[in-house]
Every structure is written in structure tokens, then in C-alpha cells.
Amino acid sequence: MRIKQIYTVIAALLAVLILPSCAVTTAPTEASSKTTGKTTKASTAFTSSTSTGDGEKEEVSPDVKAEEFARSNSSQLRSDMAVGGGEYVAAFAATLNINDAKKDQFYALAKTNFDQIFVSSNTNAKEVVSNTRKVIDVAGI
């Protein structure tokens, strides 16, 4: 009969385990717990990249945002640049403050100059941004 008791407990736990309605330990939440670990002071985690810890606004180069975006979306950004369009290259253009009127030109430019922006499979986010800047400067947009 002991086996029966053990299984009763297992069944109850199984039922309990599967009741949750939201993501709790999935990858996305893992990522968010990292962020929120710092949110004891509401402003810090959120603004860490663009300001000092005490929330005072500090002037930062606009490309910091572009680098951050490229860092966490390198793969998707690269795919978009290879085809000359898409959501990620559009967001990237916004972080680089590229004029709306020149966006299509920028997408085409990114495609034709793909291997100057992504020189190899190891090109990092900082290089991607500075290479993109160079390509933009040469083309004069």
C-alpha cells in the first residue's frame, strides 16, 4: 500500500505543477529576473544604459542605443540587412536617427554594403555600428 500512497502524492503534485497560468521560469522570465534584480530602485535598471545610477540624465552618444540594439539582435539585424529591409533594420535605423525620407535608401545601402558592415561572422555590435556609420558617410545620407 505504500506505493499507492507515494503515487497519490505524485499525482497531486503533478496536478499542482501544471496549474500555473503564466510563464514563470521560462527563458523570457529568466531574462527579466536579471533586469528586475536591479529594479529595487525603480529607475536604475531601466535607465542604466542612458544615465547614471541616481537617475540624473547624462548626455551619451546616440550610438550607444544603436550598439545596444545591435548587440541583442545581431542575428536578426544581419538577416534584415542581407535582404535590404525588415523590422529590425527599421528599428536600427531609428536608433541611428536616420531620417524617414532616407530610410529606403539606407536599407538598400545596407544590403549592397553587407560585407563591409558585417566583415566576418565575428563582427561585434560596436563594429557593426561604426561600419554602418562609415557606409552612411560615404554615401552621404
Binding site: 527563458a27 523570457p28 545581431s74 542581407a82 553587407f114
Partner: peptide
């Protein structure tokens, strides 16, 4: 997994795949 995409610069766990993906995209851009 949560923080970095497989093909991020910080994870070179799979160099072969990395290179292959790069070549496919470079070819696509041409």
C-alpha cells in the same frame, strides 16, 4: 538563452553554424 541569441557575438558555442549562417546571408546580400 534569455539574454543572448544563439548567434550573438558572445556565444561562439557553434562556430561552424556561425560561419555557415554568415556565408548564407552574405550570399543573399549579393
Amino acid at each position: 538563452l534569455g539574454d543572448q541569441f544563439p548567434n550573438d557575438e558572445n556565444s561562439h558555442s557553434n562556430l561552424e553554424q556561425e560561419t555557415l549562417l554568415y556565408q548564407l546571408l552574405a550570399a543573399r546580400s549579393k
